[in-house]
Simulated assay, not measured.
Amino acid sequence: MKIYTVFVEPETSGNIGFLARSMKNFGLTDMVLINPCELKDDAYYQAMHAKEVVQNASIYDTLDEFFSDKEITSIVGTTGTPGGSYNIPRIPITPEELGKKMNVNGNIALLFGREGDGLTNEELEQCDVLVSIPTSDEYPIMNITHAATIIFYEIFKNKKSYPIDNLDVASYEDKHVLTQLSESIISKLDYPEHKERQANIIVKRIIGRAFIAGRESRTLRGTLKRINSRINNSHEE
Protein backbone atom coordinates (compact mmCIF):
# COMPACT_ATOMS: atom_id res chain seq x y z
CA MET A 1 0.00 0.00 0.00
CA LYS A 2 1.33 3.45 -0.93
CA ILE A 3 -0.16 6.47 0.78
CA TYR A 4 0.25 9.87 -0.83
CA THR A 5 -0.08 12.67 1.73
CA VAL A 6 -1.58 15.49 -0.33
CA PHE A 7 -1.50 19.06 1.04
CA VAL A 8 -3.85 21.26 -1.01
CA GLU A 9 -2.68 24.86 -1.46
CA PRO A 10 -0.61 25.16 1.74
CA GLU A 11 -0.29 28.78 2.79
CA THR A 12 2.79 28.63 5.06
CA SER A 13 5.97 26.72 4.31
CA GLY A 14 6.51 26.04 8.02
CA ASN A 15 3.40 23.86 8.07
CA ILE A 16 4.79 21.87 5.14
CA GLY A 17 7.84 21.13 7.29
CA PHE A 18 5.76 20.16 10.31
CA LEU A 19 3.65 17.84 8.12
CA ALA A 20 6.81 16.19 6.73
CA ARG A 21 8.07 15.61 10.27
CA SER A 22 4.80 13.98 11.31
CA MET A 23 4.79 11.83 8.15
CA LYS A 24 8.24 10.45 8.92
CA ASN A 25 7.22 9.67 12.51
CA PHE A 26 4.74 7.17 11.09
CA GLY A 27 6.67 5.81 8.12
CA LEU A 28 5.11 7.95 5.38
CA THR A 29 7.38 9.39 2.69
CA ASP A 30 5.27 10.41 -0.31
CA MET A 31 4.33 14.09 0.06
CA VAL A 32 2.33 15.84 -2.66
CA LEU A 33 1.85 19.61 -2.72
CA ILE A 34 -0.95 21.15 -4.78
CA ASN A 35 -0.30 24.76 -5.85
CA PRO A 36 1.82 25.43 -2.74
CA CYS A 37 3.24 28.65 -1.35
CA GLU A 38 6.95 29.29 -1.85
CA LEU A 39 9.08 26.73 -0.02
CA LYS A 40 11.23 28.82 2.32
CA ASP A 41 13.95 27.82 4.78
CA ASP A 42 11.44 27.26 7.58
CA ALA A 43 9.94 24.32 5.66
CA TYR A 44 13.25 22.47 6.05
CA TYR A 45 13.93 23.81 9.55
CA GLN A 46 10.56 22.64 10.90
CA ALA A 47 10.93 19.28 9.16
CA MET A 48 13.96 18.53 11.38
CA HIS A 49 15.09 15.01 10.44
CA ALA A 50 12.46 14.71 7.68
CA LYS A 51 14.03 17.26 5.31
CA GLU A 52 14.18 14.65 2.54
CA VAL A 53 10.38 14.34 2.62
CA VAL A 54 10.13 18.03 1.70
CA GLN A 55 12.98 17.80 -0.82
CA ASN A 56 11.34 14.86 -2.60
CA ALA A 57 7.79 16.25 -2.53
CA SER A 58 5.88 16.12 -5.82
CA ILE A 59 4.30 19.42 -6.85
CA TYR A 60 1.22 19.80 -9.07
CA ASP A 61 -0.83 22.80 -10.10
CA THR A 62 -4.18 21.06 -9.49
CA LEU A 63 -5.64 17.97 -7.85
CA ASP A 64 -6.91 16.72 -11.21
CA GLU A 65 -3.36 16.87 -12.56
CA PHE A 66 -2.17 14.72 -9.65
CA PHE A 67 -5.03 12.20 -9.99
CA SER A 68 -4.36 11.77 -13.70
CA ASP A 69 -0.65 11.17 -13.06
CA LYS A 70 -0.96 8.46 -10.39
CA GLU A 71 -2.94 5.23 -10.25
CA ILE A 72 -5.01 6.03 -7.17
CA THR A 73 -7.14 3.29 -5.62
CA SER A 74 -9.03 5.52 -3.18
CA ILE A 75 -9.27 9.22 -2.37
CA VAL A 76 -9.62 10.02 1.33
CA GLY A 77 -10.58 13.58 2.27
CA THR A 78 -10.26 15.21 5.68
CA THR A 79 -12.74 17.71 7.09
CA GLY A 80 -13.06 19.62 10.35
CA THR A 81 -16.74 20.42 9.71
CA PRO A 82 -18.50 17.08 9.30
CA GLY A 83 -22.12 16.89 8.22
CA GLY A 84 -24.93 14.69 9.38
CA SER A 85 -27.87 12.90 7.87
CA TYR A 86 -28.96 16.03 5.99
CA ASN A 87 -25.50 16.99 4.73
CA ILE A 88 -24.58 13.85 2.83
CA PRO A 89 -21.44 15.17 1.09
CA ARG A 90 -19.84 15.69 4.53
CA ILE A 91 -20.73 12.43 6.33
CA PRO A 92 -17.35 11.17 7.66
CA ILE A 93 -15.82 8.24 9.47
CA THR A 94 -13.40 8.55 12.40
CA PRO A 95 -9.60 8.15 12.06
CA GLU A 96 -9.86 4.86 13.96
CA GLU A 97 -12.38 3.51 11.45
CA LEU A 98 -10.19 4.70 8.59
CA GLY A 99 -7.12 2.97 10.00
CA LYS A 100 -8.97 -0.34 10.20
CA LYS A 101 -10.21 -0.08 6.61
CA MET A 102 -6.94 0.94 4.96
CA ASN A 103 -5.51 -2.56 5.00
CA VAL A 104 -5.16 -2.79 1.20
CA ASN A 105 -2.58 -3.18 -1.55
CA GLY A 106 -3.33 -0.02 -3.48
CA ASN A 107 -2.46 3.64 -3.87
CA ILE A 108 -4.35 5.95 -1.54
CA ALA A 109 -4.46 9.75 -1.69
CA LEU A 110 -4.97 11.31 1.74
CA LEU A 111 -6.08 14.90 1.19
CA PHE A 112 -5.50 17.74 3.64
CA GLY A 113 -7.03 21.11 2.81
CA ARG A 114 -5.97 24.71 3.19
CA GLU A 115 -5.04 25.93 6.67
CA GLY A 116 -7.87 28.46 6.70
CA ASP A 117 -10.66 26.92 4.63
CA GLY A 118 -9.94 23.21 4.30
CA LEU A 119 -11.17 21.38 1.22
CA THR A 120 -13.93 22.86 -0.92
CA ASN A 121 -17.28 21.12 -1.33
CA GLU A 122 -16.28 20.24 -4.90
CA GLU A 123 -13.04 18.65 -3.69
CA LEU A 124 -14.87 16.74 -0.95
CA GLU A 125 -17.30 15.33 -3.50
CA GLN A 126 -14.34 13.86 -5.41
CA CYS A 127 -13.41 11.81 -2.34
CA ASP A 128 -14.40 8.18 -1.83
CA VAL A 129 -14.17 8.49 1.96
CA LEU A 130 -14.22 11.41 4.39
CA VAL A 131 -12.53 11.33 7.79
CA SER A 132 -13.05 13.76 10.67
CA ILE A 133 -11.63 13.90 14.20
CA PRO A 134 -14.17 14.23 17.05
CA THR A 135 -13.31 17.46 18.91
CA SER A 136 -14.83 19.79 21.49
CA ASP A 137 -17.72 21.98 20.34
CA GLU A 138 -15.98 24.93 22.01
CA TYR A 139 -13.01 24.74 19.64
CA PRO A 140 -13.61 22.10 16.96
CA ILE A 141 -11.08 23.03 14.27
CA MET A 142 -7.58 21.59 14.69
CA ASN A 143 -4.27 22.73 13.25
CA ILE A 144 -3.73 20.71 10.10
CA THR A 145 -0.48 19.12 11.26
CA HIS A 146 -2.01 18.09 14.60
CA ALA A 147 -4.97 16.53 12.80
CA ALA A 148 -2.66 14.79 10.35
CA THR A 149 -0.64 13.29 13.21
CA ILE A 150 -3.75 11.70 14.73
CA ILE A 151 -4.80 10.25 11.38
CA PHE A 152 -1.27 8.99 10.61
CA TYR A 153 -1.13 7.28 14.02
CA GLU A 154 -4.43 5.46 13.47
CA ILE A 155 -3.25 4.26 10.06
CA PHE A 156 0.15 3.20 11.40
CA LYS A 157 -1.14 1.25 14.39
CA ASN A 158 -3.44 -0.82 12.16
CA LYS A 159 -0.85 -1.45 9.45
CA LYS A 160 -0.39 -5.10 8.60
CA SER A 161 -0.17 -7.34 5.56
CA TYR A 162 -3.17 -8.86 3.89
CA PRO A 163 -3.76 -12.45 5.05
CA ILE A 164 -3.76 -13.55 1.41
CA ASP A 165 -0.61 -12.88 -0.62
CA ASN A 166 -0.97 -10.83 -3.79
CA LEU A 167 -4.66 -10.17 -3.25
CA ASP A 168 -5.98 -8.21 -6.21
CA VAL A 169 -7.50 -4.86 -5.17
CA ALA A 170 -9.94 -2.85 -7.26
CA SER A 171 -8.21 0.14 -8.85
CA TYR A 172 -9.51 3.69 -8.87
CA GLU A 173 -10.59 3.11 -12.48
CA ASP A 174 -12.48 -0.09 -11.49
CA LYS A 175 -14.41 1.81 -8.84
CA HIS A 176 -15.02 4.69 -11.24
CA VAL A 177 -16.71 2.20 -13.62
CA LEU A 178 -18.87 0.90 -10.75
CA THR A 179 -19.86 4.45 -9.88
CA GLN A 180 -20.73 5.26 -13.50
CA LEU A 181 -22.88 2.13 -13.82
CA SER A 182 -24.67 2.99 -10.58
CA GLU A 183 -25.26 6.55 -11.78
CA SER A 184 -26.67 5.22 -15.06
CA ILE A 185 -29.12 3.02 -13.16
CA ILE A 186 -30.10 5.81 -10.75
CA SER A 187 -30.71 8.20 -13.65
CA LYS A 188 -33.49 5.88 -14.88
CA LEU A 189 -35.37 5.83 -11.55
CA ASP A 190 -37.22 9.13 -12.01
CA TYR A 191 -35.76 10.75 -8.90
CA PRO A 192 -36.02 14.52 -8.48
CA GLU A 193 -32.69 16.12 -9.38
CA HIS A 194 -31.59 16.78 -5.79
CA LYS A 195 -32.41 13.22 -4.69
CA GLU A 196 -30.57 11.76 -7.68
CA ARG A 197 -27.49 13.79 -6.75
CA GLN A 198 -27.67 12.60 -3.13
CA ALA A 199 -28.10 8.98 -4.21
CA ASN A 200 -25.04 9.26 -6.46
CA ILE A 201 -22.94 10.68 -3.62
CA ILE A 202 -24.06 7.92 -1.24
CA VAL A 203 -23.22 5.16 -3.74
CA LYS A 204 -19.79 6.71 -4.42
CA ARG A 205 -19.01 6.86 -0.69
CA ILE A 206 -20.18 3.28 -0.06
CA ILE A 207 -17.97 2.01 -2.88
CA GLY A 208 -15.08 4.11 -1.58
CA ARG A 209 -15.37 2.94 2.03
CA ALA A 210 -15.54 -0.71 0.94
CA PHE A 211 -11.94 -0.92 -0.41
CA ILE A 212 -13.20 -3.59 -2.79
CA ALA A 213 -11.16 -6.57 -3.96
CA GLY A 214 -10.69 -6.93 -7.71
CA ARG A 215 -12.81 -10.08 -7.94
CA GLU A 216 -15.61 -8.37 -6.01
CA SER A 217 -15.39 -5.37 -8.32
CA ARG A 218 -15.70 -7.49 -11.46
CA THR A 219 -18.63 -9.47 -10.07
CA LEU A 220 -20.46 -6.34 -8.96
CA ARG A 221 -19.76 -4.67 -12.31
CA GLY A 222 -21.32 -7.63 -14.14
CA THR A 223 -24.37 -7.49 -11.87
CA LEU A 224 -24.86 -3.75 -12.39
CA LYS A 225 -24.52 -4.18 -16.16
CA ARG A 226 -27.28 -6.80 -16.12
CA ILE A 227 -29.53 -4.55 -14.02
CA ASN A 228 -28.90 -1.64 -16.38
CA SER A 229 -29.58 -3.80 -19.41
CA ARG A 230 -32.85 -5.11 -17.93
CA ILE A 231 -34.00 -1.55 -17.21
CA ASN A 232 -33.11 -0.47 -20.76
CA ASN A 233 -35.01 -3.44 -22.25
CA SER A 234 -38.09 -2.75 -20.10
CA HIS A 235 -38.14 0.86 -21.31
CA GLU A 236 -38.06 -0.31 -24.92
CA GLU A 237 -41.02 -2.66 -24.52
Rank of each mutant, 00 (worst) to 15 (best):
I108R: 01
I108D: 06
I108E: 04
A109G: 05
A109K: 06
A109Y: 07
A109N: 06
A109M: 10
L110C: 04
L110K: 09
L111S: 08
L111K: 02
L111R: 06
L111Y: 02
L111E: 11
F112S: 05
G113S: 13
G113H: 15
G113Q: 13
R114M: 10
R114C: 04
R114D: 09
E115Y: 00
E115S: 01
E115C: 03
E115L: 05
G116Y: 03
G116I: 00
G116E: 15
G116D: 15
D117Q: 07
D117S: 15
D117Y: 07
G118E: 11
G118D: 13
G118N: 12
L119I: 07
T120Y: 03
T120L: 04
T120G: 02
T120R: 03
N121T: 07
N121M: 12
N121A: 11
N121G: 04
E122Q: 10
E122L: 08
E122H: 05
E122K: 08
E122C: 00
E123K: 07
E123V: 05
L124Y: 11
L124V: 14
E125W: 00
Q126R: 15
Q126S: 10
C127Q: 09
C127D: 14
C127S: 14
C127P: 01
C127M: 09
C127E: 13
C127V: 11
D128C: 07
D128E: 14
D128V: 09
V129W: 10
V129T: 15
V129M: 13
V129Y: 12
V129E: 12
L130S: 02
L130K: 00
L130N: 03
V131C: 09
V131T: 15
V131A: 03
V131W: 04
V131G: 06
V131S: 04
S132G: 05
S132E: 13
S132F: 06
S132M: 09
S132Q: 08
I133S: 00
I133K: 01
I133C: 01
P134E: 12
P134R: 06
P134W: 14
P134T: 13
T135N: 13
T135V: 08
S136W: 08
D137P: 05
D137F: 09
D137A: 11
D137K: 15
E138M: 08
E138G: 13
E138R: 09
Y139P: 03
P140R: 06
I141M: 01
I141R: 08
I141W: 02
I141Q: 04
I141Y: 12
M142E: 13
N143P: 06
I144R: 02
I144A: 08
I144S: 04
I144Y: 01
T145Y: 14
T145W: 10
H146R: 00
H146F: 03
H146E: 06
H146M: 10
H146P: 02
A147F: 04
A147T: 09
A147E: 05
A148S: 14
A148W: 04
A148E: 03
A148F: 07
A148L: 07
T149P: 01
T149W: 00
I150A: 10
I151V: 15
I151H: 03
F152M: 01
Y153I: 09
E154N: 12
E154M: 06
E154C: 03
E154D: 12
E154H: 14
I155C: 14
I155S: 05
I155D: 10
I155A: 08
F156W: 13
F156A: 12
F156Y: 15
